[in-house]
Computed example of a mutant assay.
Amino acid sequence: MYDMKKLANLEKMNTAAEPGMKAFWAFNDAAFADGALNRLTKELIALGVAMTTQCPYCIELHTKAAREAGATDAQLSEAALVAAAIRAGGAITHATHMFGA
């Protein structure tokens, strides 16, 4: 199922749902533009989110973008560890609901 070549089909969506896709791409561009956070920081956040949602497309795309923004192996590794800690923490904190049943 996962095949980076399938991302070429985004062009079909850009055509078939032009107003919504234009809005999506404009939002995406604005979200990743330098602002209070620089591009590298935003890409590391995106990479952490991609790891927690386990999207292989996003992991690949945002790893590449983070590298292009100057990410080091250490920064990528720490982003992965933060993502793992947040995901594990979610399981632990949700487990507290077991004791109210």
Rank of each mutant, 00 (worst) to 15 (best):
A85G: 02
R67P: 01
A8H: 15
A71N: 02
A79K: 00
I59D: 05
F24M: 14
Y2V: 12
S77T: 13
K22H: 08
A83R: 00
A80V: 02
F24W: 08
D3Q: 13
K12C: 11
Y2H: 08
K6R: 11
N9W: 07
H62K: 01
F24D: 09
L37I: 12
N9Y: 10
K42H: 14
W25T: 09
A74D: 09
M4K: 14
M21F: 10
K42Q: 05
G48T: 04
N14L: 12
A23N: 12
R67H: 04
A71V: 00
K5G: 15
P56C: 02
T72D: 09
L61Y: 06
R39M: 10
K12D: 14
Y2P: 02
N38P: 13
L7N: 14
A69V: 01
R67I: 08
K22W: 04
R67L: 06
T15N: 12
I45C: 10
A23V: 08
A83I: 00
Q54Y: 07
K5I: 14
M4E: 08
V49N: 07
N38I: 07
A69F: 00
G90T: 12
T41M: 11
L47K: 00
L37A: 13
A46R: 02
E60I: 00
K12V: 03
C58N: 02
M98V: 03
E68V: 00
H97N: 08
D29P: 11
I92M: 10
A36K: 07
T41H: 13
F32Q: 09
T63E: 11
A31T: 14
T93R: 05
A16R: 05
R39Q: 11
I92F: 04
A69N: 09
Y2R: 04
T53N: 15
E78K: 11
R39N: 15
G70T: 01
G20V: 05
A84F: 08
L81E: 09
L81K: 12
G90P: 01
N38K: 12
G89A: 04
D34V: 15
A30T: 09
L76F: 01
G100S: 11
T53P: 01
I92V: 11
E18L: 04
A101R: 04
T96W: 03
G48F: 02
T63S: 15
K12F: 13
A31D: 08
L61V: 14
A101M: 06
E78H: 09
V82A: 04
L10N: 11
T41L: 12
K12W: 07
K6T: 04
T15S: 10
A30R: 12
M98I: 01
G48W: 02
A79Y: 00
W25M: 15
F27M: 04
L61N: 06
E78R: 10
F99W: 12
A101I: 06
I45T: 06
H62N: 04
C55P: 00
M4V: 10
I45Y: 06
I86C: 07
R67V: 03
A46Q: 07
E60L: 07
C58I: 01
R87K: 10
F32G: 14
A71Y: 00
Y57P: 03
T41K: 14
A85M: 09
A88V: 05
A16L: 12
A79I: 00
G89E: 01
A80I: 01
L40F: 06
A26N: 13
A31P: 09
A88N: 10
Y57M: 08
A69L: 04
N14P: 03
A79Q: 02
K5H: 13
W25F: 09
A36V: 10
A65G: 03
A26G: 14
L47M: 06
